[in-house]
Simulated assay, not measured.
Amino acid sequence: MSHESSATPAPLLKTPLNDLHVELGARMVPFAGYSMPVQYPAGLMAEHLHTRSAAGLFDVSHMGQLRLVGPDAAAAFESLMPVDVIDLAPGKQRYGLLLNDEGGIIDDLMFFNRDHANGGDIFVIVNGACKAGDIAHIQAKIGQRCEVIPMPEMALLALQGPQAVTALQRLAPGVEQLVFMTGGRFTVAGCDCFLTRSGYTGEDGFEISVDASQADTLARALLAQPEVKPVGLGARNSLRLEAGLCLYGNDIDTTTTPVEASLNWAMQKVRRSGGARAGGFPGSDKILAQLDNPAALSRKRVGLMALERIPVRDHTALHSTNGTPIGEVTSGLLGPTINQPVAMGYVQPEFAAIGTRVNAMVRGKPVPMEVTSMPFVPTRYHRG
């Protein structure tokens, strides 16, 4: 991250819902080059708890949307990630990791197989701060093999929470039949949408891609439902941390491999053992060696719960109980749902076992923490 004083910062971009956020009294902050709502007048805590109990509406239009089109799209995309793209069935979504040649994570993303006629049509959603770099990377690596079509004209909304389906099916009958990580085209309140049953909160819910010109109409129709309230980036962060989900730039980046980041589950067996499609992704030699010999890792991402009610923030040093530095917190806050300080971070592998005691150094004082399994709050994805 550069801090050159001479460079004039680029003016902040605005999402198609900017006027609505202002009208709703949002506190706007810079995020990923956009002016984004961090919270509304209800406040972070109320917004977080409302999402866990009812339904929250999030503007995530800063994220990047693109399509990979052509008969070779799946095989081409699979060459960039340690993930099974070829066998993803039409109508289904999967989590993916874009890697550099050292096996570091360029970005994490979601991709969906929209192809129903074997023409090849993969819809991809990438992180806002990474989207320009991701699109350039994908274009450079596989642009000869398939069409890479950015979709800057599209907005993205997330409706999350146990009552999200109740609210959405009023406006789009049939969405209740979707299960977690499936999706399709729906007309929602007269707006032409592509939506998936997925999200970033640990709750049931939907992510809805809609043309920017219809985003305001759609958002107002959703907010008119009694279950739904607007939720900002602040609660989005606390919700995803309680769900044990990584934030790109905090918990994973180009210096971390999927194995160090405890994302082995995101690398399907077909890409990591034996067969014709094992390996062959950027950094595969290093990553496959780490999978074969976990003891050789220098660090591992773990969940941590404080044993005292003292919040432990990002970048807090972690020490062993005898005072040796062993790692660092990458995300941490007081979890509103469980009313306990929770964190994730990296520790040396010998300190990664569940139940291990470590100390977080908060303003020079040790705060005892325990390595714990994630998620911190049980997930409630609708698997049917």
Results as ranks from 00 to 15, higher is better:
residue 17 L to F: 06
residue 17 L to R: 02
residue 19 D to Q: 14
residue 19 D to S: 12
residue 20 L to A: 12
residue 20 L to G: 13
residue 21 H to M: 05
residue 22 V to H: 11
residue 22 V to Y: 06
residue 23 E to Q: 08
residue 23 E to F: 02
residue 24 L to Y: 10
residue 25 G to Q: 00
residue 26 A to Q: 07
residue 27 R to S: 07
residue 27 R to D: 06
residue 29 V to M: 13
residue 30 P to N: 10
residue 30 P to V: 09
residue 30 P to K: 10
residue 30 P to Q: 14
residue 31 F to K: 02
residue 31 F to V: 03
residue 34 Y to L: 07
residue 35 S to N: 13
residue 35 S to W: 01
residue 36 M to A: 12
residue 37 P to W: 03
residue 38 V to T: 06
residue 43 G to F: 07
residue 43 G to Q: 07
residue 44 L to S: 01
residue 44 L to R: 10
residue 48 H to T: 09
residue 51 T to G: 03
residue 51 T to N: 00
residue 55 A to W: 06
residue 55 A to N: 14
residue 55 A to T: 11
residue 56 G to N: 07
residue 58 F to L: 14
residue 59 D to R: 01
residue 60 V to L: 15
residue 60 V to Y: 05
residue 61 S to M: 06
residue 61 S to Q: 02
residue 64 G to N: 06
residue 64 G to D: 10
residue 65 Q to V: 05
residue 65 Q to M: 12
residue 66 L to P: 00
residue 68 L to W: 02
residue 68 L to G: 02
residue 71 P to R: 11
residue 71 P to D: 13
residue 72 D to Q: 14
residue 73 A to V: 12
residue 73 A to Q: 05
residue 73 A to P: 01
residue 74 A to R: 15
residue 75 A to V: 08
residue 75 A to I: 05
residue 78 E to I: 11
residue 79 S to V: 05
residue 81 M to I: 14
residue 83 V to I: 14
residue 83 V to E: 07
residue 84 D to N: 15
residue 86 I to F: 04
residue 88 L to I: 15
residue 89 A to W: 04
residue 90 P to G: 13
residue 90 P to E: 10
residue 93 Q to Y: 00
residue 95 Y to A: 12
residue 96 G to Q: 14
residue 96 G to E: 13
residue 98 L to I: 15
residue 100 N to E: 09
residue 100 N to Y: 08
residue 101 D to C: 03
residue 102 E to T: 13
residue 104 G to M: 04
residue 104 G to A: 12
residue 104 G to S: 05
residue 105 I to R: 03
residue 105 I to A: 06
residue 106 I to Y: 07
residue 107 D to A: 03
residue 107 D to L: 11
residue 108 D to N: 04
residue 109 L to A: 08
residue 110 M to G: 08
residue 111 F to I: 02
residue 111 F to Y: 15
residue 111 F to M: 04
residue 111 F to E: 00
residue 112 F to N: 02
residue 113 N to W: 01
residue 115 D to M: 05
residue 116 H to K: 07
residue 119 G to Q: 14
residue 120 G to N: 07
residue 121 D to Y: 06
residue 121 D to G: 02
residue 121 D to P: 02
residue 122 I to G: 00
residue 122 I to Q: 00
residue 123 F to M: 10
residue 124 V to I: 15
residue 125 I to S: 13
residue 125 I to H: 01
residue 126 V to A: 09
residue 126 V to S: 10
residue 127 N to M: 11
residue 130 C to F: 04
residue 133 G to T: 06
residue 135 I to S: 06
residue 135 I to E: 07
residue 135 I to P: 00
residue 136 A to F: 00
residue 137 H to I: 00
residue 137 H to T: 12
residue 139 Q to I: 06
residue 139 Q to H: 14
residue 140 A to R: 13
residue 140 A to Y: 01
residue 140 A to S: 13
residue 146 C to V: 12
residue 146 C to L: 11
residue 146 C to E: 11
residue 146 C to W: 06
residue 148 V to R: 10
residue 149 I to H: 04
residue 150 P to Y: 01
residue 150 P to M: 03
residue 151 M to D: 08
residue 152 P to R: 09
residue 152 P to I: 02
residue 153 E to I: 02
residue 154 M to E: 08
residue 154 M to F: 08
residue 154 M to Y: 10
residue 157 L to I: 09
residue 157 L to K: 04
residue 158 A to Q: 13
residue 158 A to L: 03
residue 159 L to P: 04
